[in-house]
Design a binder for these strands. Sequence first.
RNA 1: GCGUAGGUGGCGGAGUGGUCAAUCGCAACUGACUGUAAAUCAGUCGCCCAUUGGGCUACGGAGGUUCGAAUCCUCCCCUGCGCA
Length: 423
Amino acid sequence: MQAGLGRAGVIHTAHGDIETPAFVTVGTKATVKALTPEMVNSLGAQVVLANTYHLYLQPGDELIKKAGGLHKFMNYNGPVMTDSGGFQVFSLGAAFGEGGISKFVKNSDNLCTKSSNKSYFSKSNFEHEEAIVKLAKIDEDGVTFKSIIDGSEHRFTPERSMQIQHNLGADIIFAFDECTSPLADYEYQKQAMERTHRWAERSLAEHQRLNAEAGSKSDLAPTSPRLRGVNTRDTTSNPALFGIVQGGRHQDLREESARFLAGLCPPTGGFDGFGIGGSFNKEDMGTAVGWVSQILPEDKPRHLLGIGEPADIIEGIKNGADTFDCVTPTRMARNGTLMVKGGRLNIFNAQYREDFGPIEEGCGCYTCQLNSDGTAKYSRAYLAHLFRAKEILASTLASIHNLYFLVNFTKQIRSDILENRLG
RNA sequence: GCGUAGGUGGCGGAGUGGUCAAUCGCAACUGACUGUAAAUCAGUCGCCCAUUGGGCUACGGAGGUUCGAAUCCUCCCCUGCGCA
């Protein structure tokens, strides 16, 4: 973009290119919920993000390695990313049992008193009446997790996260970090950020050790790994590693974090790209992204972790973020909220029970197709019925629509940038 | 006809003399969801005002007992089941 930090580019991976800005679909447990890989492809998605913690617990990273890696295991041949488990440090730690805490805090919220006694997950097997036992506990060396599946205890360190992610075999992996709560005070944000920095160094060192180890086992392995040109497609190549910027809502911390990570350049090279993680102020998330984009190297991709509201994507792009992932489109789809140009539409609302039009006029997605006579193939009334009847197809049709909406919303911004339609 | 078990808010189903406008589930209505503990969660759900709160009508129908009844008594109506 002529003004500001926005830009369009291409990330080359062993499994294909990602044209940025791009929305990354979330497939936590090696599946984009409710969709087949063919559906994911045909709605225009370019990348899938899976999760280290979840796949480590089930079915296990060793098994996925035996299967031939994530791509083969889940039958998805496009680029795949894995998150490091760093978000679970937050969601199973600080946020656990605290009902309604998200990565965002609003200026209008009172940071000191925002604590709800209502549990978001009242059916939890792990929740005790009096004291909520967190499922993640942090120390300098790493994090001790309790399994969300059976309560068993597991230990993640930066090294362990790297080993698991290498076993999973994604194209782009993330350093092990701590996603902090927006409720944490400045002092904690600073301490956590510094710890995340130490973990970043350890992640990078272990990643390079694993790459070297892999290299010594195979003649085909590249000597200079990571983001490679599309012409050198090599599906067995080592993953690229992204470091994660933290620092919460504080400008000095975010800038310090970006400087630190950008400066990590051991003999074999630094990070291949960067994630921007952690919590934000709802009102100035874009500003915070801008703080770090000005510092991070211009020739490396920047992924804004866990951000996906349309307005936030626009702000992220304007401030230099290249890729975005978010559970919002798929989760909201499963919960009956459909994304449309004007905002959102709750298909459960009584007004749609006899509405035989498509979700959105003019939408190009599979779900919004029209018959030759101009009527909707899958009407709002039909979707309303499927949701009320709890039919599985409801999730599929709604997920296709929401993902198409966001993926193409982001693609549109890319072409606007390329054609200079944006400032 | 005799015997027996019942009739409670849209439905199912608790309650069996006061703390009952009535537990709970479903349905319905509304909202939330930002690196997925999520096909989840929260709120509303007789009527009328109201900020806490107040008023009214309600537990098949009609009477009655009682300071007080969805709950006890009498008669009537209806339903299931068994026997004729």
